[in-house]
Nucleic acid binder design. Structure first.
Lengths: 125, 125
DNA sequence: CTGTATCCGCCGCGATACTG
DNA sequence: CAGTATCGCGGCGGATACAG
């Protein structure tokens, strides 16, 4: 066999491409990371927001909703006043941690090369 | 120590976030994949385009330029008429293959759960 | 505290047409 | 065959203000 992977179907909606869609919303993987590494798999909205410098309330909620729809996290409304909502990793979300962490680890190992990202000519003329 | 990873700095421009930027342009990882798995690390423009159903000439060239700037591939202009340009994986690009393939492999292993991506209610009211 | 609703700029990305 | 130039749409995503 010549192929490296078994999946040589590059259809528009193959599994690899669907995974990439999970990264389309840029906060998804970071939420999963923080939930797993720092928050033991569950956290309330405010904690999440404070753990992710730069995220806005809007995008945090919006991203969490999408993640709930895709089955990466679950949403638990606890009290009533004041509202206390907790998000938890699902088995699917937990399984997704592994490839994500490898991705991040790779970034740390290659941070030197990655430092000069947009520092090059940009034009060749 | 309580942290799972050594990097607990969640600055705006940490290594993990820079890696995510590589996925901002959606074709990047797929180009790397195809180059490595099906094309033995090097290929001409036309071959690449035919290997990636759905990609336009514009985005292919544009993405390859960005990848060249970040050091993931090199660009080699061979002949002159007609033009024959070949793109090759750099050591950096080759190293990037591993985490990408793990990501794709995860997608294939969880394709069942991923099938119903946008198939849920979307609204909760 | 958690979540929603606008307004709006930015840019990825496709379609199309044209140059060498 | 490889690449560029335009036009235009859709949607991410930040800022702000408001509601339960």
């Amino acid at each position: 066999m010549k192929a490296g992977t078994s999946d040589e179907e590059w259809r528009e909606d193959c599994a690899p491409r669907r995974v990439l869609e999970l990264f389309a919303t840029k906060w998804t993987s970071m939420i999963l990371h923080v939930l797993h590494v720092r928050l033991n798999g569950a956290a309330r909205t405010g904690v999440l927001q404070r753990s992710l410098p730069g995220v806005s309330k809007k995008m945090l909620t919006q991203t969490l909703r999408e993640m709930e729809n895709t089955g990466l996290v679950t949403r638990h409304v606890q009290g009533t006043v004041p509202p206390a909502v907790e998000y938890r990793l699902t088995p699917l979300g937990t399984r997704f941690i592994e490839p994500i962490e490898l991705l991040y680890a790779w970034g740390r190992s290659n941070s030197d090369a990655l430092n000069e990202l947009g520092s090059r000519p940009t034009s060749r003329r």
